[in-house]
């Protein structure tokens, strides 16, 4: 058995497809093809972070909360989505796919690893950064997928406006990173 796996791990096609990272161009082409496939099959452009708000609402409902009166979920469409449940929500399945696919890819490349947490500073920065990104994405009506990638792909000007301010944010963020983490 071990001989078989040793052979597989030296196979040039295995190395090319599963082991070595794709080039940026290959990744870009694949992303473009799949986002067209998502648009064609689901009828809406690809988005990621809007789903997280729904997951939050479902979690809140699980513990007895109620979001019916929240402005964000007040529309009939939003209520219908919540009432239909997570298993009938396309965006949730897309996100499950990302998580499962990422795990599968790292396992196939034999690169799975539990990383150690380096410092409390790292935890604080990750939690703060995650909260700010999530909050910002909901205020902006999308993240770098829905409001940037899908918008630009749909020839919407708003995507370019998002890109401009994304660069400003990334610039400030990298300055903060250099200040606190180097």
């Amino acid at each position: 058995m071990k001989a078989f796996w040793d052979k597989v791990s030296k196979n040039p096609y295995y190395i090319k497809i599963f082991k070595n990272p794709f080039t940026y161009v290959t990744g870009a082409v694949l992303l473009s093809i799949f986002q067209i496939a998502i648009f064609a099959s689901t009828g809406s452009p690809w988005g990621v972070s809007g789903t997280f708000a729904n997951w939050g609402a479902w979690l809140y409902r699980l513990v007895g909360g109620n979001v019916d009166k929240w402005y964000y979920f007040s529309s009939e469409g939003a209520q219908a989505t919540l009432n239909n449940g997570i298993l009938n929500h396309t965006g949730s399945w897309l996100n499950f796919g990302i998580i499962a696919g990422a795990l599968l890819a790292t396992l196939l490349a034999s690169q799975f690893k539990f990383k150690k947490i380096k410092s409390l500073k790292q935890v604080v920065a990750a939690v703060l950064g995650g909260l700010l990104m999530g909050y910002g994405a909901r205020l902006a009506g999308g993240c770098n997928i829905g409001a940037l990638y899908s918008s630009i792909a749909s020839l919407s000007l708003s995507g370019w406006v998002f890109a401009f301010f994304l660069f400003i944010g990334a610039f400030i963020g990298s300055k903060l990173l250099a200040k606190f983490f180097m």
Partner: peptide
């Protein structure tokens, strides 16, 4: 750079 995420490893190496 173990446990560090991008772009920290690159910045550390550049330094």
């Amino acid at each position: 750079c173990l446990g560090e995420a991008c772009p920290v490893p690159l910045m550390k190496v550049q330094k």
